[in-house]
Write a protein that binds this DNA or RNA. Structure first.
Lengths: 111, 111
DNA sequence: AATACATTTGAACACCTGTTCATATATCAT
DNA sequence: ATGATATATGAACAGGTGTTCAAATGTATT
């Protein structure tokens, strides 16, 4: 199954936005239930300003949607499509690692 | 389904490595069949040096494995786990943008 | 109107990242 | 041995990125 160059770029951009720890945490927090910016900041112990900055990128990537209510703005995963993708990812990470290692490659020195 | 802080960081790092267009292309090229560095570089029109650099990151993230044969080094997706994750992502991106929404809630004011 | 609260915005900073180039290492052939 | 091929490595540069701070915007309450 192959992707077009455009689709590959699109996927890379999506992964790039999700590939930040704080942004991923924010996305996970408002994946299934609406969350206000302040609530997210409070739960993750992050500055509201920082959360807002990340939320803007998540919104630009169409990963979350915003709903304004009074003074607060509630964020939620954009749609079931996003929830499904994240769900798959989370499921794979939550799974135990494979034990089908025929041979172990040498430790790569990541600097 | 929630992840531990460590698992969340781990996932973010994995997404971060995949979140580069060239790196993702490289990963896709050697997802199901072994590919030598030169072959990847040739197919993607990238400098072998650049491919090697990216391959090192992919290897450090345990996303690909290397098998040396003579002068060439063949790379392949690390395991079925990785193939499954990438497969899911590709499938989601390859899907048509509209899915069967039984109820269409949250109308977005995205800029 | 003024105050307090929630969120956003922009600038500034330090840090990281992708790429290129030159060079090194390894392997095969002559 | 030399030379050619394949890959890896390191330095260096340009540009991007996350974070913080201060200030702005919007919104409800008094």
């Amino acid at each position: 199954m192959r992707l077009s160059p455009d689709q590959t770029t699109e996927l890379a951009e999506m992964l790039h936005v999700m590939g930040d720890a704080n942004r991923l945490r924010i996305l996970l927090v408002c994946l299934d239930e609406e969350r206000a910016v302040g609530a997210i900041a409070d739960e993750l112990s992050l500055a509201p300003s920082l959360v807002s900055h990340h939320l803007r990128l998540l919104r630009a990537a169409r990963l979350v949607r915003a709903r304004k209510q009074g003074k607060q703005v509630f964020y939620l995963a954009a749609d079931d499509h996003v929830r499904s993708v994240i769900g798959d990812l989370v499921a794979h990470v939550a799974e135990p690692p494979e034990s089908d290692h025929t041979h172990d490659d040498h430790r790569g020195g990541a600097d």
